[in-house]
Design a protein around this nucleic acid. Sequence first.
DNA 1: CATGCAATGTTAACGGCGTTAACTTTGGCA
DNA 2: TGCCAAAGTTAACGCCGTTAACATTGCATG
Lengths: 203, 203
Amino acid sequence: MARTAYHHGDLYQQAHEQALAIVREQGDSAISLRALARQIGVSTPALYRHYADRESLLAELAISGFQTLRQHLLAVDQQDSRSALIGIGLAYVAFAREEPNLYRLMFGGRVLPRGAHPRLDQAGLAAFQVLEDTVANGQQRGYLKAAPLALLTAAAWSLVHGLSQLTIDGHLPGPDTEPQLAAGITALLLDGSIERSSKEPTP
Amino acid sequence: MARTAYHHGDLYQQAHEQALAIVREQGDSAISLRALARQIGVSTPALYRHYADRESLLAELAISGFQTLRQHLLAVDQQDSRSALIGIGLAYVAFAREEPNLYRLMFGGRVLPRGAHPRLDQAGLAAFQVLEDTVANGQQRGYLKAAPLALLTAAAWSLVHGLSQLTIDGHLPGPDTEPQLAAGITALLLDGSIERSSKEPTP
DNA sequence: CATGCAATGTTAACGGCGTTAACTTTGGCA
DNA sequence: TGCCAAAGTTAACGCCGTTAACATTGCATG
């Protein structure tokens, strides 16, 4: 099918793919339903049969983004706790660097507010879960402190998320030194930043 | 002046103020030059005498955002290194929580790319500088490790920036527990996350 | 096999937007 | 006093998202 030129094109899939390509290359603000329809060779309102509005289309793109991010995180070797945690950090930042525009869409907040697209929230949670599992694992193995899981996870996520954001926005030194930076920063969160001989030890 | 209804209104200032109010309340995507001009009671192209385009107007708003952020960070007590660092973290996240829409504009990346508005870059750098100075101070006092300043600063900034972003986007537990979370997370970066008895100590 | 319906397209239109061109008013300075 | 540059105006271009009203078609049901 997809021949008859009227009915039965796989418009949903095609729109998704082409829009994803545009977002990856030019960012979400470059998505125009009219231009997208033109590019596919269909009338603009046809898109509304498959997507409620522009934002819903973007939400679908963000969902696929979270899914691939999750895959990247799942691929990290979990044998050793320390290298698993650092590996997660590296993989996370690497994803952001490879797909900056997609990453910005996923975490923009402005374009896709939480709660408006349940499936999107769920996809984000699923990716986050991989990180949380890794942290919980590190705790169970006795490698990480017995601090509240939510606290440790939030710290880890904040760190990698912030680093990703700062990196893709060019706030940090060149991308050449980036992987070392990510590894070094993750290690800092694990080992701490204070000099051991200091007067104020771990509370 | 500002009477004659033709010339000499302080249009620049008024536009800045009203636009800032809109961004704070509804986010940058709610800014429309036409609506703004209408609200002020002036023709749309008049705005172009003072702002090159919509993005330049937004850049000015972001600049004021960075300036107030900097003031908040400068107000942190610097007596004790540890509480100075935690205080900076708390102040940073508090600002993001008070001005989520402005914060998103400042760090959106998508709307205001680095390099396009030099004064904006400079304002961001000035705010960042406060954090870097605090870290450098902590090092000089021997409280922080002698790791590369850029590394320590990037870690601290990533952490608070990521936490801010996740917080205002609703990815973390309710805002009630937020201040403790911020303090706890900052402390984690200082003290480390690993159990002291673990086999892999600080490299 | 015919037919009716739901799914999926279409064209036409509304109101909004950012931006530019061409023109007008006006305050201040030579 | 006269002129010029700054700061305002109207008119227009070409986009955009979205909706209403209508057309085509595949499929399931009688």
